[in-house]
Design a protein around this nucleic acid. Structure first.
Lengths: 226, 226
DNA sequence: GATCGATGTTGACACCGTCTACTTCGAGGA
DNA sequence: TCCTCGAAGTAGACGGTGTCAACATCGATC
């Protein structure tokens, strides 16, 4: 709070903030300790009073990225909640679609942060959760899990097919994002990409409908566009 | 061929070979030009006579990785071919499962090379295909595409659901691999992982069955284990 | 047999992460 | 009130990296 120029005051948070900014631009490789120290106005190696090595800082960035990812997904789900429907099954199906769309949308709009969120070494788990800006239970898996439980509750997803369903959904959206981010699909234009994603999500929807024998009415629009 | 010690003779291929070895162990980050030069017995910066920068060498490694990936997938498909069946539909379904299993198995058994195959900057396409060890048409997409065409031919996959099917399949296996490689699922043991993969692939199979209204006989074993 | 371009070398530059030894400063006890 | 002691920041070094420019070598070609 004072004008003491020798001791920064809250260097740790300043570093994490600067690291997140750098990660947004350049991904994990864009995070350089010495450069961060420069932008924060502190000597190199000052970071070592707060992080034992670079990976520990990256883990903190990863936690932030995860939190933002969950936020993006949650917002999509909330948007579904605001669309009036008396059809519980349809609403639950839309929730799952929204979760997937939110995941991919975040990955493609914040590629650097998304890469960080999954590039972190396993140092993460303990150290990074001290971040006050990251609430503990915020992870994509939990949100997805709840959504799938909802699908079982309304009878759209059979209990047998429920097994392994998290993995199917997670894998398909994560793979979709990764292939467009790093893979050979980076040059695909946005419109085509979005259309393909709808095909992909529709396939999952169809699979779960089949699991319970629920017929799908083609007139039901399960996609939240925009 | 001669004993000339000044000129290496086939430095380019030697470098790519050493780079592939290094990538197997340490992934893209494990490939260091200076270290490669040392192991090949040549001065640093000699590599710059054959690659304009590091990414170009990494692209060559990526091409090798892709080729090995396709090989692994093809071998699995070939194994399906050797199992006698009069049921064309079942055989086609097994082929698709095999493609997916091959993809994941390679990713998890050669994580470094797999990461390289997808970490390459877009420099790749032109420069890397000069590699004599990489046949041009070898890419996972083509193999997958043929397999899906086969599913349409036997009437298991509807033409409408065929659209975007490559992406669904590719995304699900790629995401599965990526999550176990870098993501938070790295610590999952092998048995659980394989079982989950079967659930995931079964969901895809179910989706495609539903697309054509083909009933699934539970007694049909679509998985090639081992 | 001389030449010339492809290939390899040497040395430099600017980065990077990490370690050790030193300095500063503020909080808390005498 | 003063003093100490530990937390936080600094300075400098080491070895590693990619990349570039200037120089050396050697074999094919005229």
């Amino acid at each position: 709070m004072t004008s003491s120029s020798y001791h920064h005051g809250n260097l740790r948070e300043a570093l994490v903030g600067a690291a997140v900014d750098a990660a947004r631009v350049g991904g994990p490789d864009g995070v350089a300790l010495r450069e961060l120290a420069r932008t924060v106005g502190v000597s190199h190696s000052a970071a070592y009073r707060h992080f034992s090595h670079r990976d520990e800082l990256l883990a903190a960035v990863a936690a932030r990225g995860m939190a933002e990812l969950v936020d993006a997904m949650q917002q999509r789900v909330d948007a579904v909640e605001r669309v009036p429907t008396s059809d519980d099954v349809l609403r639950s199906r839309r929730r799952l679609i929204a979760v997937g769309q939110g995941y991919v949308a975040f990955a493609l709009s914040e590629p650097g942060l998304f890469r960080c969120a999954f590039a972190a070494k396993d140092v993460a788990l303990t150290a990074a959760t001290d971040d006050p800006l990251v609430e503990p239970a915020a992870n994509p898996y939990g949100l997805l899990s709840e959504t799938l439980d909802g699908l079982v509750d309304v009878g759209f997803l059979s209990p047998e097919a429920r097994e392994g369903a998290e993995m199917t959904c997670w894998a398909v959206v994560h793979g979709f994002a990764a292939l467009h981010l790093d893979g050979p699909l980076g040059a695909v234009d946005v419109a085509a990409r979005d259309e393909t994603l709808e095909h992909v999500l529709a396939a999952i929807d169809r699979s779960y409908a089949a699991s319970s024998g629920t017929p799908i009415r083609p007139e039901d629009d399960i996609f939240a566009r925009g």
